[in-house]
Design a protein around this nucleic acid. Structure first.
Lengths: 338, 338
DNA sequence: AACAAAATCCGAAACGTTTTGGATTTCATA
DNA sequence: TATGAAATCCAAAACGTTTCGGATTTTGTT
């Protein structure tokens, strides 16, 4: 593998000059620079990022810490799209991306911080990490710049990107109300998840603004799981047969609710309307197709990467990015739309 | 950031001893080792992989080169699952994984080989790269150990993992034949793709063994695209109304074929049976659910990583892994199966 | 021709590890 | 007590780059 030293020898100059020539410094004669570039090409030279990173003390790589990279999580294309978005921006600005996942069988022998520090990534993006993950605090408190997805923590070195979850939920519920529904149930995620909290707020606001009462007992937590949501929906629908519509905090849970409705012999959307959240691929393929609040997951990844790298280069205006959502009306709420 | 030098100072030993203590060499007194480990912990030491990689000339990182990491490709969860599988094995053996994607807008300013060499990855896995990709040759000819997914190239430094595509296709077609179908069309991918070639072979073998004739004109290429497959299916079905079944070389194309059938008012499976290949998530959610040949995509990734790392460590028995497929019978071929 | 300024180049140190080849200490044995 | 072996330690070189501070050469001006 040819090094800068080989080039120096071949060109009859010092390694300093080769380095400076290749890096575009102005204190090297244009003729020598051309010669050096030529030789570098001939010798098929690739700079050694390890050596460079060592001396410069940065690697031009960011870490992507995800916890949803399991076999089971493929139904939910959230992680994948975020990853694609991150990848997109990162490759635009010539960074590389190293993937850390914590789905190892021997779980967590190393903390996120250790992973990041060992690989000397310049910063990290965290996706799918639960708020109660003990290591979340650690990385946030470390000096590693990072941006979180859907977790609202901000400090000198940490920012986040999220969508407007209150408004998103509100739009969904307003849609249901506009269709005449009055007894609306909500299938939420975790008690303590940020997005759950926000979406519940949007749910309540929409009811309030329409002059409708909020019934605590019409809200269940489905843990963002399909099966769990199904069980909870069955319970809710039998205990409260007056329910005519469901707002679900994720599409995956909406799938569960749809199953529940089918099990109970309730027609969608005539007897029960269902709207989800996320707009995963499956949403448009269910029977009936699922109405939902679309989040641009790709954009979330893209913006997260952009924010992080702006932070790294000291040119971030703010450390928070809030993206828009979009209401997608399909047949799980209204028959034969458009 | 603390270094072994700091530890050495604090422990009153040389850096050599610290290094050897931390790396478990036997020529350091157990008492000193404990002391060093203790101090390392106190000082919150993380080894610098850049420095280590520089001197050892290997990085304990592998590259994953994918070309399907675009916004559009999310329907097809192939890439994601392979990635999850790779990630799983890689984290089991304490390697890291750096993701290279070539979906940059400024396309291909750097070749795969350059990416790998600059980051000094020890080896690479290539997924979703087309056989006619000009850079495929390059990386295969380079001295970088790599394993390809679904591309049968083998050399001293390159291996591959694939599934038994001939048998897989055969099983699908035999299933159709066993249901009484005699006029079976095939929606293939590219002319020159390895898997297409193999699946066509399986298609022909199944026909041959059942004593059925092979009709060239009943085979179309849908480029592995949903829309393209739909168009081709419409053409085929109108030109050859005798067709009663379709074998598709991918589920995505099967979706297209299903649309075509619906457009033409043909009921599935009564008037036309459809079977796909891959078993993507969507397959079980279509109406009717799609019969298919399931590939264990996660396992493909896992095995690829395993093979690569075995190759890196010089203990690979062979450089080829062929995985099994499984016939999944759903309602797009038989009404109300068990 | 002389001199200052500008342009071009370079030696050496530094980054944080591993490893080689030997130095020193400890220990058991004669 | 002397001696060799075993155990324990260490100095220095090496990996490939960047950068600091200065050295050398070229150029322009008078």
């Amino acid at each position: 593998m040819t090094t800068i030293k080989d080039i120096a020898k071949a060109a009859g100059v010092s390694i300093t000059t080769v380095s400076r020539a290749l890096n575009g410094y102005s204190d090297v004669n244009e003729k020598t620079r051309q010669k050096i570039i030529e030789i570098a090409k001939q010798l098929n030279y690739s700079p050694n990022t390890l050596a460079r990173g060592l001396v410069m003390n940065k690697s031009k790589a960011i870490g992507l810490l995800v916890s949803g990279l399991t076999r089971e999580s493929t139904k939910d294309n959230f992680t994948f799209e975020v990853l694609a978005g991150v990848n997109q921006y990162v490759s635009e600005v010539d960074y590389d991306m190293v993937l850390f996942s914590t789905t190892s069988t021997k779980q967590r022998e190393k903390t996120y911080t250790q992973l990041c520090r060992e690989r000397r990534v310049d910063g990290a993006i965290l996706q799918g990490i639960r708020v109660d993950d003990p290591y979340l605090q650690e990385v946030v408190e470390s000096d590693i710049p990072c941006v979180l997805i859907d977790i609202p923590i901000e400090s000198e070195t940490v920012g986040y990107v999220t969508t407007d979850n209150v408004l998103g939920a509100k739009k969904a519920v307003q849609h249901l109300i506009s269709l005449g529904h009055r007894q609306i149930a909500m299938m939420n995620g975790y008690e303590f998840a940020f997005v759950s909290e926000q979406r519940l707020k949007g749910f309540q606001e929409a009811l309030f603004e329409a002059g409708l009462p909020f019934h605590e007992h019409l809200v269940a937590n489905g843990a963002f799981k399909e099966e769990r949501a199904e069980q909870e929906a069955v319970r809710l629908l039998t205990q409260h047969p007056e329910i005519t519509a469901f707002f679900c905090a994720s599409d995956l849970m909406a799938l569960g609710v749809m199953k529940a409705a089918k099990t109970l012999g309730k027609r969608i959307p005539e007897e029960i309307a269902i709207i989800g959240y996320d707009d995963i691929i499956l949403a448009s393929y269910t029977t009936p197709p699922l109405s939902t609040i679309a989040q641009n997951k790709f954009a979330m990844g893209y913006e997260a990467a952009k924010l992080l790298i702006e932070m790294l280069e000291g040119k971030a205006q703010s450390r928070v990015r809030v993206l828009e959502t979009e209401l997608k009306i399909r047949e799980s709420t209204v028959k034969n739309h458009g």
